[in-house]
Amino acid sequence: WKITIYDQENFQGKRMEFTSSCPNVSERSFDNVRSLKVESGAWIGYEHTSFCGQQFILERGEYPRWDAWSGSNAYHIERLMSFRPICSA
């Protein structure tokens, strides 16, 4: 599993790669995730830290803005603060 997060939209700004769970992006000096690329595996992104709040399934691909992973939710969530890989047995 591999995911790359960015602190600006369209894959700009600070970037960081992960191959395992991140319970709080702010502990990695990110205020928020504004864009991301899922390089391999599937991940679950969460609205809040500690894997809480609205969940987003993140499959392999590029997500240049928050609405790319938020989709058409009843209330739009511009925040992604934690994530972890989906492990299959």
Rank of each mutant, 00 (worst) to 15 (best):
W1G: 14
W1L: 10
K2E: 06
T4A: 07
T4R: 04
T4H: 14
T4V: 04
I5M: 04
I5Y: 02
D7E: 11
Q8I: 03
Q8W: 00
Q8C: 07
Q8T: 06
Q8P: 01
Q8K: 10
E9K: 05
N10R: 07
N10P: 00
N10Y: 14
N10V: 02
F11W: 03
G13D: 04
G13K: 01
G13Y: 00
K14H: 09
K14I: 07
K14G: 05
K14W: 05
R15I: 08
R15V: 10
R15W: 14
R15Q: 15
R15H: 15
M16Q: 09
F18V: 07
T19A: 08
S20M: 08
S21Q: 09
S21K: 06
C22A: 04
C22Y: 03
C22D: 01
C22E: 07
P23S: 10
P23N: 07
V25C: 05
V25A: 05
S26K: 10
S26H: 12
S26C: 12
S26N: 12
S26W: 06
E27S: 09
E27R: 07
E27Q: 14
R28A: 12
S29G: 06
F30G: 03
D31N: 12
D31L: 08
V33Q: 01
V33E: 01
S35G: 00
S35C: 00
K37F: 05
K37Q: 08
V38M: 01
V38K: 01
S40C: 09
S40E: 15
S40W: 06
G41K: 02
G41E: 04
G41Q: 03
A42S: 15
W43A: 01
W43M: 03
I44Y: 15
I44M: 10
I44D: 00
G45S: 02
Y46R: 02
E47Y: 00
H48S: 12
T49V: 15
T49Q: 14
T49E: 15
S50M: 15
F51T: 02
F51H: 04
F51L: 03
C52R: 14
C52W: 06
C52I: 10
G53C: 04
Q55I: 03
Q55T: 08
F56W: 13
I57H: 13
I57C: 09
L58F: 10
R60Y: 06
R60K: 12
R60M: 13
R60G: 08
R60A: 11
G61W: 03
G61Q: 00
E62R: 07
Y63L: 02
P64N: 11
R65F: 06
D67T: 15
D67L: 08
A68W: 06
A68F: 08
A68H: 08
W69V: 12
W69H: 06
S70V: 14
S70T: 14
S70C: 12
S70R: 10
G71V: 12
N73A: 12
A74C: 11
Y75T: 11
H76Y: 09
H76M: 12
H76I: 09
I77H: 12
E78A: 13
E78W: 08
R79G: 10
R79N: 15
L80G: 02
M81V: 06
S82P: 03
S82I: 01
F83K: 01
R84S: 10
P85E: 04
P85M: 04
P85Y: 02
P85R: 06
I86Q: 14
I86D: 13
C87S: 15
S88K: 10
A89V: 09
A89F: 05
